[in-house]
Design a protein around this nucleic acid. Structure first.
Lengths: 203, 203
DNA sequence: TGCGCTACTGCCCTTTGGTGCAATAGACCT
DNA sequence: AGGTCTATTGCACCAAAGGGCAGTAGCGCA
């Protein structure tokens, strides 16, 4: 009723679970009774073995209680599948106790817990098929930079140091800096690192 | 710095904001300085007037700090647009103080706060057209770093300079460098920029 | 022809970043 | 108790990044 139930068939449940919720129960999928009730269910998904029968089977026996899926090897595809099966959350099975507590708190308040990476893909995907609604930024690619500035910025975004860029483009180190200074101002960033993060976002 | 900043042009900011974060600041979009720094920014979106210029303008002046958008009349389309503009959260401007605190907690831990309805639409939309294969990254979390090294590395991956990290963690600038030097060696990268790219890859 | 934009560079300066060497201190294991 | 690991910091040094000031040069357009 008022406790957490972890469902796993793995022999070695991370002790973080107990750490996060000392009074929780850990049970195997087989021993899970149909009538089981809990504050929140956590379903452990070991390894790649997302045998499409296992999870739906377990879920069907939860009688529409809220549940979170813990994956040993989280990835976006699995997360998507899990969420579409009705999970309220999806995270790493080895997440910190602190994070687990956080997940529980969010989910119990009707929230959903999803990794940043997965949600970003949602956004990108939905965005690309809503172009009629969300107007596309004309210079999405050039970022409003001149050709040369853009060329330098792209190399910085790949992690190249100024010297390398200068050699590649056959210009001086000073010129690279000049282009970057302009790029920083136009894009309103402090330094090359933030520039790189900006350019690499969503890809 | 270490406080919350609410940005609104509305004359009647919900007092829940003050209730949730007593030491927060409430400023108008105009009086927002480019150099403003805060634990978290909250941008108030009044009514329907999502004039596509206002929000991007405000965002551009936050110099890529994390921010949450509070909408008087939340809806999925707006939420989508807001998130694609880089918001870390989107919720009702009149949410309970308790919920706001919750949102802050999640966002400050690198989470994203999205309404259930909106996320459901993401799932449906993406689910019906997902064949693209993407390789999963097994140890996306620890990278083999110690806890402290990892903590510092994550902040670097968000573009923070050493000084800021040092202040946040209440350690010296030199110690931050020490952790980074170890992280560089373990991950076999040259500098902070490559570290950031590594950690953010696939995001 | 003159103005504006872009590209390029040198000199010089300040700030950050990164590291070697060395030391202190707590936690944990044998 | 002794050894290892982690976290912390100081001092010093060097490399890299960033930018102010100033100047040259090509291109397109009014």
């Amino acid at each position: 009723m008022n406790r957490h139930i972890f469902i796993t068939n793995s022999g070695f449940p991370p002790e973080r679970w107990k750490e996060a919720f000392p009074s929780s129960h850990i049970v195997s999928a087989d021993s899970l009774k149909d009538s089981a009730s809990a504050k929140l269910f956590w379903i452990h998904l070991p390894g790649e073995s997302m045998l499409s029968s296992y999870l739906p089977d377990v879920i069907s026996r939860l009688s529409h209680e809220r549940f979170v899926v813990l994956s040993d090897q989280p990835n976006d595809e699995q997360g998507l599948e899990v969420l579409s099966l009705g999970a309220s959350g999806y995270c790493n099975a080895y997440a910190d106790a602190e994070v687990l507590a956080q997940v529980a708190e969010v989910v119990l308040k009707d929230g959903l817990w999803v990794g940043r990476s997965l949600l970003n893909r949602f956004i990108v995907s939905v965005n690309t098929r809503m172009q009629s609604v969300v107007k596309a930024d004309p210079n999405l690619n050039t970022f409003g930079l001149t050709e040369r500035e853009h060329e330098v910025a792209l190399r910085v975004a790949r992690g190249e140091p100024n010297k390398t860029i200068a050699n590649d483009l056959n210009i001086s180190d000073r010129t690279v800096k000049a282009h970057l200074t302009m790029a920083f101002k136009k894009l309103n960033v402090r330094d090359r690192l933030q520039l790189a993060l900006l350019i690499n976002r969503g890809q």
